[in-house]
């Protein structure tokens, strides 16, 4: 039988990492609004504003619901994104990433989106439906370049499991230093802008046009759950980017340095994801919002062509 202590230890580690993820996520929310405010030359809310918002939403006295499918949304989105987080190699800890691989994560990112869409659809509000349509088209749009580059990397490193990919990049030869994947990193960063639903691509939750899209009927604790999902999604997506191109934050090998390596790796990982998120925020604070056709054309014309270039480059490189 599986020895229970190791299992217990593992579950504890997983639970700890998940709470840490949520905490970082909430920090990021405040961080994002602070950075945007600073760019807009105003002071902006305190860094811990994210925590306050979430507690306020959960402190709401009355909440409404549009039936059991609507409640399903909150459940599925939070559960889905934690599942995605568990299957990512985070800061050197391989949580469950040896069990699944990059395709599993790409599809796991879809569970919360689809559950959230189900709930929004159940609310019967036309704004929500239009918002979901835009979100799904946007997803289809940014998936093409992302998937092309990811496939190119998988074939180049001849593995599809992220854990092995991170190991391959350990010792500072990160994928971003390989010239072909440097351009790949740029392309995926543009796709990341779509995944994080930052300004040029926040077509789905446009407050002015469709009254914040799918979240129009979510209030109180439902909105709280969605805020948690949104923050955790930021952490997951930036970690994915870091794992793919920046070696997943693994700087010191654990075997040599023991527990200090864990701390250093964690800090490096945290710094890297903050840097990546900061980059996204810079673009977010400056750009107006695209129309959905423009976003689709942007991703499937310019981004996909660049990604095709990478595919051909890798094809030439790897074709034996």
């Amino acid at each position: 039988m599986v020895d229970l202590i190791a299992l217990g230890e593992q579950i504890l580690l997983l639970a700890g990492m998940v709470t840490l993820g949520f905490a970082i996520g909430m920090f990021f929310n405040g961080f994002a609004r602070k950075v945007t405010a600073r760019i807009h030359n105003r002071i902006g809310p305190p860094i811990y504003q994210g925590y306050i918002d979430v507690f306020k939403l959960f402190a709401k006295k009355t909440n409404i619901s549009h039936g059991w499918i609507f409640d399903l949304a909150a459940l599925f989105s939070v559960a889905g994104i934690t599942l995605a987080f568990l299957f990512l190699p985070v800061a050197g800890f391989t949580l469950l990433s040896t069990e699944g691989d990059i395709f599993l994560i790409l599809y796991l990112l879809a569970i919360p989106a689809l559950g959230f869409a189900l709930g929004a659809g159940a609310s019967g509000n036309p704004n929500a439906a239009v918002g979901i349509m835009r979100a799904l088209i946007l997803m289809l749009a940014y998936e093409l370049p992302l998937v092309m580059v990811v496939v190119a990397m998988m074939i180049h490193y001849n593995t599809t499991s992220l854990a092995t990919l991170v190991q391959m990049q350990s010792g500072m030869h990160w994928a971003i230093f390989v010239p072909v994947f440097f351009i790949g990193a740029i392309i995926v960063d543009m796709a990341l802008q779509g995944m994080l639903m930052e300004k040029p691509f926040d077509i789905a939750i446009a407050p002015h046009e469709i009254a914040s899209g799918p979240m129009v009927e979510f209030g109180g604790k439902h909105l709280g759950a969605l805020m948690l999902y949104k923050m955790m999604a930021i952490v997951v997506e930036t970690t994915l980017f870091v794992d793919l191109f920046l070696g997943g934050g693994v700087v010191l090998s654990v075997s040599q340095y023991g527990w200090i390596a864990y701390v250093v790796n964690f800090l490096v990982w945290f710094a890297l994801i903050t840097l990546v998120f900061f980059l996204a925020l810079l673009i977010n604070a400056v750009f107006p919002r695209f129309r959905i056709e423009q976003a689709l054309k942007f991703y499937w014309k310019y981004d996909a062509l660049a990604a095709l270039l990478i595919l051909i480059w890798v094809f030439a490189g790897v074709s034996i």
Binding site: R33, A37, H40, N41, R42, I43, G44, P45, P46, Q49, I52, D53, K56, I64, P207, H208, A211, S212, M215, V216, E217, F218, G219, G220, L223
Partner: peptide, 22 residues
């Protein structure tokens, strides 16, 4: 809302729907 008086520093943010608003 903007840089001169900046209500956001008190945590006040504009919301699109009454469901989300206080």
């Amino acid at each position: 809302m903007t840089s001169r008086y900046d209500m956001e520093r008190f945590g006040i943010a504009p919301m699109a729907t009454p469901r989300q608003a206080d």
